[in-house]
Design a protein around this nucleic acid. Sequence first.
DNA 1: GAGGCGTTTTGAA
DNA 2: TTCAAAACGCCTC
Length: 169
Amino acid sequence: MTCSVSIATSQGEFTAHFSNRGLARLDFPGRKHHPDQTDATMPAARDLRRWQKLTTDALRAALIGAKPGELPPFDWHGATPFQQSIWRELKKIPPGQTSSYAELATAADHPRAARATGGACGANPIPILVPCHRVLAAGGRIGGFSGGLDWKRRLLASEGHHIRSAHRA
DNA sequence: GAGGCGTTTTGAA
DNA sequence: TTCAAAACGCCTC
């Protein structure tokens, strides 16, 4: 059971889902909401207000390519250890910089798991705040994005990056 | 540049 | 337990 909150931004209305552990998921504008499948309980009203503000501020900052500042706690309950290690590495990528699936895999101590890293990125429930859009495939190719490549290009452009093409070079 | 294969992880049957 | 799929990388032609 989680608590869903709408977050209005210049890019549309996102939906954040909070559990008692923190931010559990962030949906893009227009996305269908995923049904609650967590065993978490509702967050306390005080926590919810605080996390909602942090999430809103961080999201709006991220959308203009600025540093997000303080983030709410993330609820990664249910994710595999591999996914969590990848997501932790993702959070280390600063705005305006990019990494590759292979680099991320190496940083997570699985140097050959570039492909699995792509899977972990795709499973990321909190895009933008966990910046999976900053991960490119080898050769600067765009790779993929759970929210759609259009979003990935838009987010990267706001941080000063310009991707060549979605196709293999 | 295109195609094929290797590697790792995940999820479904 | 097995097998197929996946947001990849690298080698070969």
